Amino acid sequence: MNQVAYAIGERRGELLDQEQHWERMTADQKMALYDLNRFGYRLLFVRMMPEGPLAVVSQQSELAVIDFEGEVNLRPDIKLREESQ
């Protein structure tokens, strides 16, 4: 499954701050992110998907996702949209 993740803001034009993204995460996602923080991963944003929130995290140029159940995918098939100047 190929997903496109948007780093600029919500597709609806609503920009969320880091705390608002954090609040959208499930408890399982937060626990998984705590574990990934030890390896330098940081939360980029959370997308609301039909099956539940999907957290997109990064460690330098490496992307990973955490599904609503807290399962981590270190090799997701996603692309971030480049920020337009």
Score class of each variant (00 low, 15 high):
V56P: 00
Q20C: 02
E82K: 11
Q60K: 12
D28F: 10
G40D: 04
P76F: 11
E69F: 08
F45V: 01
L74T: 09
W22Q: 12
D28G: 06
Q59G: 07
M49I: 09
E51W: 05
V72Q: 06
T26R: 12
E71L: 09
R42M: 12
F68D: 10
R42C: 02
S58N: 13
Q18V: 13
M31E: 15
M48W: 01
M31S: 14
I78C: 07
D28P: 06
P50L: 03
I8S: 11
M1D: 09
N37K: 15
G40I: 05
Y34A: 14
I66Y: 04
E19P: 00
I66V: 12
A64E: 01
F39I: 00
M48V: 02
L54V: 06
R38M: 12
A5L: 06
Q60C: 00
L54Y: 02
G13F: 10
A55S: 15
R47D: 11
A27E: 15
S58Q: 13
E69G: 12
K79E: 09
H21E: 08
G52H: 05
L16Y: 08
V57G: 03
M49Y: 05
V46G: 02
Q3N: 10
D77M: 12
Q20E: 13
Y41C: 03
P50Y: 05
I66W: 06
F45N: 03
M49H: 10
K79S: 14
P53Y: 01
M25I: 03
P76L: 11
W22V: 09
I8M: 11
L54T: 01
F39C: 00
P76G: 12
E23R: 15
L63M: 10
P50N: 12
R11S: 09
Q3G: 01
K79Q: 12
G13C: 08
E23Y: 01
Y6V: 08
L36H: 08
M48Y: 01
E71F: 10
Q29R: 08
F68S: 15
E82R: 13
E10P: 11
L15I: 14
E62C: 01
F39K: 11
D28I: 00
V56Y: 12
G9K: 14
Q3W: 11
R75G: 06
Q29F: 06
M25Y: 03
Q85H: 09
E83P: 08
P50V: 04
L43I: 02
Q29M: 04
L54M: 15
E19T: 11
D17A: 05
D35A: 14
D67S: 07
M31Y: 07
Q18Y: 12
S58E: 14
R38S: 13
M49A: 06
I66D: 04
D35I: 00
D77A: 11
E23I: 00
V56G: 01
Y41F: 15
G13P: 09
H21G: 04
G40T: 05
K30T: 12
A64W: 04
E83R: 15
M25G: 05
K79P: 00
R11P: 01
Y41Q: 01
V57R: 08
E71P: 00
G9T: 06
